[in-house]
Amino acid sequence: MNMTRKQARVSSRMVFVWFILIGFIFLLAPQGLTNKFQLAFVHIFRWPLRIGRNISLSARTERVLTDVVSRREHNQLQNYLANVTEELLQKHRKIEKLSKLRDRLYALEGAKLMTADIITASTDGHNELIINRGEMDGLGEGQFVLGDNSIIGTISEVSPRTAKVRLITDPSSKIAVKLGKLETVIQGDGKDSVKVPLLSIKHKIEIGQEIFARKKPGFLDAPVIIGTVEECKRDDANPILWDITVKPVCDISKLTDVAVIIMNPKE
């Protein structure tokens, strides 16, 4: 009896050690390799994930509406929204049928805008989206992503049918921008906004001033809006620098689809 118990104890310890080893292998494996697991999961379960996200988005929208308008107005707006959504869907299908080139932004003459649905969105710590377009649709790392005609991020990982979008609010996101006549860089703060680091107080900054992503050969050939200056104060840690907070012009949490800018498409 004692022998059996001892064997069982050793066995559970071995199981634990094996799993710990597997865990460390995953931890130390390159992120590019382990990302494939995540992208594969998203690809396999894209339908339930998208349905769940749409339900939670519509539930949130409903909650906001009931907070500020009467029930009657809410119902009217809901009906209007349903009509417009259906109309939009039909137009979307029509455009898709007529041409694979879904939409064009007047400023991006040579670019193809590839629309993509958002499968999952993560905003806790890692600000990223997973979209239902990938390498097979011409997507590549570094390409800019538009939401409501403004830059919301760049492609950070691609698999054949899905891609990860690193949002401008992610701490690891750095994008070259134009703030008035100034050329600088913005960096995400991990929350809902973006910071303009290392900018001297000798530069004049105004609240509400617009920030545009700078042209980047092969990725963007016209400046596109990113956000506006929400707050500008002296940096507490370094008083000779500004502490500038930029608010994205697009409400990323409410997006259901995005468009990826593909410069010089192969087709």
């Binding site: 460390f24 995953f26 931890l27 382990t34 990302n35 995540q38 993560s122 890692h126």
Partner: peptide, 12 residues
């Protein structure tokens, strides 16, 4: 981990 930012940390 599959639905998180990286594979490994939560598994461990």
């Amino acid at each position: 981990d599959i639905i998180g930012p990286a594979i490994g940390p939560q598994m461990l």
